[in-house]
């Protein structure tokens, strides 16, 4: 690890000032599970590491206001698992968060970090996308809200500009019933990076949203507005047709975790399974 300075601002204003002062030589730190690896591998060589964990505005970790549930940037994945509101309203996010690393990792890694790292395989991304999350971005120059679907640009790249940071992720609280499920393929049953990941949300009104990770340069989502996927009476063949159409947006590559062909095939297999599980849960809801 190269030498660097460390600051723990108490307010967002202080954090913005540090960000502006150090520009490209600043690095934000929340959970650290990606950042510290980067520092050690020297792929990150900041002059200044800005630890956000003491920023007053980022508390409380999880809050509800109106029809939005807000999860701040320093909220660890374990904190998400421990929140009953999220269990009740966003169970697929719980499932997704539970697959990120080990218990030790989830005690440190943050939801926001998982998103800002912008790995195409980020496990929480499909769940957040499918639930319609938006990202709160702030800088010394003000704040803006970005739909998560607009937030990702490519591997490791987001719309964040220099001087900006993410303060929180908002999730819309749905009034209607829905069924949701998260699924993934990995090389082993224990902790692993996803070969593909998927989240499905079926709304009682008939709309089905499917979001995917690790099958393109960035996580993405698609929706079936026709109601066919959500229709319990529809034939499997007809559903497969719709799924195949939706999945044309995927552009998986071959890497050490799996080949393009396997990923393409698993997209359909896992989409069917996630859809089935979502429908069952909708019925049970």
């Amino acid at each position: 690890m190269q030498p660097f300075a460390y600051a723990r601002p108490a307010t967002l204003a202080d954090a913005f000032a540090l960000l502006d002062e150090h520009g490209p030589d600043a690095c934000l730190l929340a959970g650290g599970t990606d950042v510290v690896v980067g520092l050690r591998n020297r792929t990150l060589r900041p002059e200044m590491v800005i630890d956000l964990k003491q920023v007053a505005e980022l508390q409380p970790a999880i809050s509800e206001e109106g029809s939005w549930l807000t999860i701040t940037a320093t909220t660890a994945l374990a904190g998400i698992d421990e929140d009953q509101r999220i269990h009740a309203r966003f169970p697929a996010l719980i499932e997704a968060a539970a697959t990120v690393g080990s218990a030790q990792i989830r005690n440190r890694a943050t939801l926001t970090g998982n998103i800002c790292h912008a790995s195409p395989a980020a496990d929480t991304a499909p769940a957040l996308l499918a639930y319609g999350a938006r990202v709160n971005v702030a800088s010394a120059r003000g704040t803006r809200r970005v739909d998560l679907d607009e937030f990702f640009v490519g591997p490791g790249k987001t719309v964040l500009q220099r001087g900006e940071l993410v303060t929180a992720i908002d999730l819309p609280i749905a009034a209607e019933r829905r069924g949701a499920a998260f699924a993934r393929i990995t090389r082993r049953r224990g902790v692993d990076l996803a070969t593909i990941s998927i989240c499905c949300v079926v709304e009682s009104a008939g709309r089905t949203v499917l979001a995917y990770g690790a099958v393109g340069p960035r996580p993405f989502m698609v929706a079936d507005e026709s109601g066919l996927l959500a229709d319990p009476a529809a034939r499997d063949g007809a559903k497969d047709e719709v799924l195949r159409q939706l999945l044309t947006k995927a552009s998986p590559i071959s890497d050490v975790r799996g080949s393009r062909e396997y990923r393409e095939a698993m997209l359909l297999v896992m989409s069917r399974r996630a859809l089935r599980a979502s429908l069952e849960r909708l019925r049970a809801a």
Partner: peptide
């Protein structure tokens, strides 16, 4: 429980 390799001592 945390991985102490993924944390800075200053944290």
């Amino acid at each position: 429980a945390v991985n102490s390799c993924l944390m800075l001592a200053v944290e």
